[in-house]
Amino acid sequence: MNVLGIRNLNVTFGTEGGPLRALRNVSFDVPRHRIVGVVGESGCGKSTLINAILGLLADNGQVESGQILFEERDLTQMDSLEMQAMRGSRISTVFQDPMGALNPVISVGKQMLHIQYRSDLGRTEKNARSVEMLRRVRIPDPKSALSRYPHEFSGGMKQRIAIAMAMMMEPVLLIADEPTTALDATLEVATIELLQELQAQIGCSVLFISHHLGVIAELCDDVVVMYAGEVVERGTTRQIFHDPLHPYTERLLRCDPAGQSTRTRHLPTIPGEIPDLRDPPKGCIFADRCDRRETICETAPPEVEMGGHRACCHRVKP
């Protein structure tokens, strides 16, 4: 049973140099109670994907075709009022920058009260829920935290408050957009553990976006690998990390200095750049950087499936 199903999603931005095809035929599922990681480098379309799901695409962006099914309903067909009712209650989001997510001139308690505006509880009960939620994200002295302002908390605490607020309405789907990127290593780990714990308690599904392979490996059940606006490979975390099928995934994993336990003076890289998405290549999107390119790669590769593990590459044989 899927909470979120993306089906052949195409998103295009109008730019001066012509339409830019930011997402092309993106399909994947977020099953109930699972944490799905989306991994990819700058320009792969991670942020566009989130904005498309939340109905927050910039004015020049448009869903050309495809479906975003959330609990069997297509989000692309909803009007802005319906979407508004969805955001913050059924689907909630944690962003990269915790300071930007909190209002600096309103106390934490008041902000936590505001986001419960749909609830029928009285003010005292709402405040009690806020305190309980802050306790669950391990904010010391949660009662007095309510009257404090965001700048009085450290970066790690601010991100935990943002997580508490996102989990407050017990959403069905939590979208986490690089929530640990702005944090130090020790806080990053604490945040991952916290997300895992809250996900288990509340029983929601999580769509976790990151470029950090280590974090994805540790937190996620399934992984979607994106490159230049396309899903090139998806499968369980073990399939992706232990047995990558797509050359891009394989080389991305090799590039991570964390993957090499022996010291090397020469780190692997992927030479070249992502193609211009105003005029994407007809064939395989990764072809011009791939070291195993053949003539057949000038045609679009099929999606090959093996036991739930899918990759878009001519070389992969079922």
Binding site: T186, E188, A190, G214, A217, E218, L253
Partner: peptide, 24 residues
Amino acid sequence: TLLSANPEPDPDKARNRISLPAEV
């Protein structure tokens, strides 16, 4: 602690993590 807090790209790696109480 810093060394143990370094997430590694291997889902099956044993993580003998040292967790720190309290904030900086």
